[in-house]
Simulated assay, not measured.
Amino acid sequence: MGAYLFVHFREKTTPDGEQVYFGLSGDGFKWEAVNGGKPVLTSTLGECGVRDHVIFRKKDGGFIILATDLSLANNFATKYHSDWKEVNHNGSPYLSKWESEDLVHWSEQELIKLVDDSFGCVWAPEIIADEENGDYMVHWSSFNTENDPDYTAIYYAKTKDFKTFSKPEILCSKKNTGIIDSNIVYADGYYYRFIKSDFEPNHIMLHRSTSLIGEYERMPAFDEEIEKEELGQFEAPTCFKLSDGRWCVMLDYYGCDKDKQGYIPFVTEDISTGRFVRSDAEFLFPYGFKHGTVMSITDDEYERIKGAFGV
């Protein structure tokens, strides 16, 4: 696989920003707008907006997109009274889902519910294959009144078909602070887990473990690099392997005006060290991609998407 697909949304004040956008790249750094920078898929269910997308290649060769069912453009000032706490506690418990066999033709949008009424908004779904058990794990961040009504934690559910899901369980939590935006990749026997911490520290953290669901150790070299940056301004990590063997984690920089927000790449020569170095000079975006996921694709898939939607 030599190309990449980045599924994301755009930070705008109008509802068209909170939809499904595609970006393409031949190397993981130089990105092209797809479909003229307009949505490829549009939400017509739930809040009629989607954020925090994940795209995933299933073992049968098909693809799935999950996203947070949320439209701040439509509802932040009205339904949520311009209050983030209301969004977190009373936002949608559903995820939006699309499926495809070829990345061009997509199923009708479907709303799926993984949680009961003790949960608040279901934020930022991510998917990883469980290598030990042969199924998939969907993980996300939420408030839960039964576990901790004050702080978000990371929860997970298991599935084999993305139709039925196990009962949600806590994947990880942090004392006296919320954690959000988990992203997990598997490399050389280890699971590497990126998480955004709200306080102490107020930045992205990296942990690793030999077990997907188990004890993780924190990687201090990642802290050393991220602490060189302005703290509290990055979220939504998405990590992927580059074609030259290096690993890249894209961090979404939100500490500025909307039209300047977007992803910044950090690259490591060896993921086992945890040392990701900021690498702005190697990347280019046509506009600010917001909270999404990078997935490796084949050259044929790249050409198929390009042919169907244009770049």
Rank of each mutant, 00 (worst) to 15 (best):
S243N: 13
H207K: 08
P220M: 11
D52H: 10
V267P: 01
H81R: 13
A33D: 09
F9E: 00
K228D: 01
S96C: 15
K260C: 12
M205S: 03
E11W: 01
G134W: 05
E108V: 03
F276S: 07
L66N: 04
C48M: 15
G37A: 10
D116P: 09
A124V: 00
L103R: 01
E225S: 10
Y263R: 04
S166W: 01
Q261C: 13
D280F: 06
G245C: 08
I128T: 09
D280E: 14
K79Y: 05
L251A: 04
T152A: 15
E215D: 15
E86I: 07
K175Y: 11
G91Y: 00
A124Y: 00
L66Q: 08
M1T: 12
D117W: 08
D83M: 10
M250A: 09
H291P: 06
D259V: 07
D116F: 09
D181F: 01
P286V: 01
T273W: 06
D135H: 13
S197I: 00
V104S: 12
D150L: 15
P265L: 07
N147D: 12
G91N: 04
I226L: 07
H89Q: 14
Q261D: 08
I55Y: 03
G36S: 06
K158A: 07
I271N: 11
D188N: 15
G232D: 10
T145W: 10
A281E: 15
K175V: 10
L103C: 07
F76A: 06
D116C: 12
N176Q: 12
A73E: 12
P125I: 02
L231Q: 14
A221E: 14
Q233L: 11
C48N: 15
V185A: 13
T42W: 00
G274L: 02
Y94S: 09
D223R: 09
W31H: 05
E11Q: 10
L284S: 14
N35H: 08
I154Q: 11
I226K: 01
C248I: 01
F283I: 11
R193Q: 08
T145Y: 09
F234L: 07
L242H: 06
S107Y: 06
R304H: 14
E224K: 14
E110C: 11
M219P: 01
M295D: 02
S197P: 00
S71F: 03
G232R: 03
T273V: 08
I64L: 14
I170K: 14
K167V: 08
S243L: 07
M1P: 13
D181M: 03
G62L: 03
C239S: 10
T42S: 14
V20Q: 08
R218L: 02
D83H: 11
N88W: 08
D188R: 14
S43W: 03
D117L: 12
Y156K: 03
K241P: 05
S107A: 12
T177N: 12
W140C: 04
G255D: 10
V40R: 00
D252E: 14
G36K: 06
W31G: 01
